[in-house]
Design a protein around this nucleic acid. Structure first.
Lengths: 172, 172
DNA sequence: GTCTATACCAGGATAGAC
DNA sequence: GTCTATCCTGGTATAGAC
């Protein structure tokens, strides 16, 4: 990947996240990246292709993170780690996740395999701990983390004390 | 409001929700509504003005709903009613809420007064019930309902059993 | 690999007739 | 109130030179 290619990807992520995919023109993008407009189309088939490259790159990183969680064996510790996930999104990744959440509403799905696995393991963990409704408990964690991530990404407040309150509800 | 005006609003809500605001052209909209393109601009200043009319109408309805919740006095009953809110979104309102959630990520905020009041009352209810961290508990309900609404609007599954599980955590 | 120039199309919005 | 016709702007994408 050449220097300019990196600049295109970086600028595109920033602009797509901040102004939306549709509302970001390739000319504006070229300006931001300090690159000619034509170059964008030399490296990527079209605007959509550029978007897909960004998503693939980010999802790659996310998968690695989730693999770390999946490595935790103890059920209680596993649930704790899973719940904590959205609370520790690094500031540098906010743009990427903002983009992903926007796309979730616009385009189709973007739930990858790693997230599916995480969910299954949650069900198992709750089952191991003797919960009455392991499936529903896992579903709950899913929507909860979704809400938490939304809050963090949109409001930029301090959510650490909320994590404590949540964990207490699971006696962790 | 004339017959065609209603048709414009209805079609716009549908298309904006399904394809997004930006990706819906006014010509496509006119086609869907069975109306000439020019007529849209006679009734609304511009595309954005049309969007605002839709939001105003929907928010009006939402406020009435929330006012019903605010009328509940008993703290426990109040919390129950508030939590249940997203679980009872009528199918006919899905398009509206899908649009609102999309816009939340694209444009600025759309949290109206009614929602603010609901939040304050939640804090009070938890305080009345002697919870340790009423503010965090209310914050939690907020992100939780947000996540639930997202799930319901995006996945169209059955979430009723999740409601039971949640309420049990609050001994309701 | 990169730039400049340009073709081509679609979108929002307006004017004028009825 | 409504339609038809049209203008103008700005967007994506390509061609060709360096």
């Amino acid at each position: 990947m050449t220097d300019k290619q990196v600049k295109i990807l970086k600028s595109a992520l920033k602009l797509f996240a901040q102004q939306g995919f549709d509302s970001t023109s390739t000319s504006r993008l070229a300006l931001e990246a300090g690159v000619s407009e034509g170059l964008i189309f030399r490296h990527y088939k079209n605007k959509q292709g550029l978007l897909e490259a960004i998503i693939a790159e980010g999802m790659n990183a996310a998968t690695k993170l989730i693999d770390g969680v999946l490595a935790v064996d103890d059920p209680k510790e596993f649930i704790k780690t899973a719940i904590s996930l959205p609370f520790h999104i690094d500031e540098s990744e906010h743009d990427f996740w903002r983009l992903m959440y926007t796309l979730k509403w616009q385009q189709g799905i973007y739930q990858n395999d790693a997230f599916e696995k995480l969910k299954e393991r949650l069900v198992k963990a709750f089952k191991d701990l003797g919960y009455d409704n392991p499936q529903e408990e896992a579903d709950l964690i899913e929507v909860l983390t979704d809400g938490v991530a939304t809050g963090i990404l949109l409001k930029d407040g301090d959510f650490s004390s909320m994590l404590t309150v949540i964990l207490k509800k699971y006696n962790i």
